[in-house]
Design a protein around this nucleic acid. Structure first.
Lengths: 230, 230
DNA sequence: AATATTAATGATCACTTGATCAATAATGTC
DNA sequence: GACATTATTGATCAAGTGATCATTAATATT
């Protein structure tokens, strides 16, 4: 009944607490940031700092040595995912006309989709958007302005249609872009949000999507731009 | 400096508390359910019961008279959004062959998209999926099994290709369906998650999406089904 | 009008949760 | 090896959080 005290090793209580591992500040900071991305991607930003610390194998208090508040840690995550992962070369790929346009589009979307299909990126992008974060909306705006504009400009040139400076982007053109973007991003959503089986051949699916887009673009844009819509 | 007590009306402290409004149980229950959908759509399921009660203009305790736990209230919301809103007539629309297939597809997706584009429906669908709710995944499965299968069956018939019982749905066919679904749902996501301007002409956008889908379907399916893929 | 019924509430409990801080123990410096 | 530096931790605080319950007040019944 009564719990008997263990008689052996009377002093020094057998070191139940594991020895502290002491890291260089930058390493620890990186470890926390990477762990936090994984953690909040899974649990949402309502996830508790104690659970995050436990997952990292550190004390909860230590988080606050490297990030003053949970809020700031989340901001740092946004920076990491939505600013640092933008590649300037994307615009170069899309606009280098020595390569056929369909090939450029395919190359770009295959690369771009690796970001859109990243489990943690996708979930945090949705959580941040649902939570009303400015940076998520800013990212969406950026995508619209830079990528969409570039692709439509190239399509107009390809199809010998008036420049965007002459005729601004039309709604059907914009929606054509959103359609491609949405269908590709949704491949990631299926996996990262609803845990459905992704296509066996993701690259092939993206490729087909771009090809369909390209074919539709010719049909729709020739009918709508540079000609009076009926 | 010192707050003087108002001398008039010495008894009965001026009724600062508004008179209770007493509703029939079913009415109150409905009011809470509808308010909760709106509330959790905005704040996510981390939203607090006190804030929900305040938004409803009732006491927090009253929530627990009608719903035993917050969890049960959320389950009731799922029931309302993901079970009750499924329309059996969708399958009828898709499979009634007296109407041309493209027309059926357009009619169906125009109706279906009013659900997908509903602000609260979309946000709660995403929140529930991110949160790992079974019912969201079950809904996604249902969509796949019932709608996708029906549409592909009709397309196979239209293009005089082998029956689904002869050759099961191929990955390109499945992805074709997901592509349309994703691009249409994403119109809603843009609005309800990222607060971007929706297209001026949503119906027209959906219609164009279906038309493109139909054209691609012919091209892709004729190349892949009933013929050996290269 | 008196009484019974029950919808609605304020107060409260037990537990969670972001944040703080003095004490502790690795590591570097001489 | 002694000492200084600082990364790390356990303990703790204050505010918040879902849930409970005795009390209150609308409405129905007679």
């Amino acid at each position: 009944m009564a719990k008997a005290a263990r008689p052996s090793t009377p002093r020094k209580p057998a070191r139940a607490t594991k020895p502290r591992t002491r890291l260089a500040p930058e390493q620890r900071s990186d470890q926390i940031l990477r762990g936090a991305i994984q953690f909040f991607a899974e649990r949402g930003f309502g996830g508790q700092t104690r659970d995050l610390a436990e997952q990292l194998g550190i004390s909860q208090a230590l988080l606050y040595r490297y990030f003053p508040t949970k809020e700031m840690l989340i901001e740092r995550i946004y920076e990491e995912l939505f600013v640092r992962r933008l590649k300037p070369e994307w615009d170069v790929i899309l606009s280098t006309r020595t390569e056929p346009l369909l090939s450029r589009l395919t190359r770009f979307y295959l690369d771009y989709s690796t970001m859109l299909h990243d489990y943690e990126w996708g979930r945090i992008y949705l959580y941040s958007g649902l939570g009303g974060s400015k940076i998520a909306q800013r990212f969406a705006d950026h995508v619209t302005q830079s990528i969409f504009t570039r692709v439509i400009a190239e399509l107009r040139h390809e199809f010998r249609l008036p420049d965007l400076t002459k005729i601004p982007m039309t709604e059907p053109e914009l929606e054509l872009m959103w359609g491609l973007h949405g269908s590709i991003f949704y491949i990631g959503i299926r996996k990262s949000v609803y845990h459905l089986e992704p296509p066996h051949d993701v690259a092939g699916t993206v490729k087909r999507g771009v090809e369909s887009f390209y074919a539709n673009a010719r049909a729709i844009m020739s009918g709508k731009v540079g000609r009076r819509s009926k």
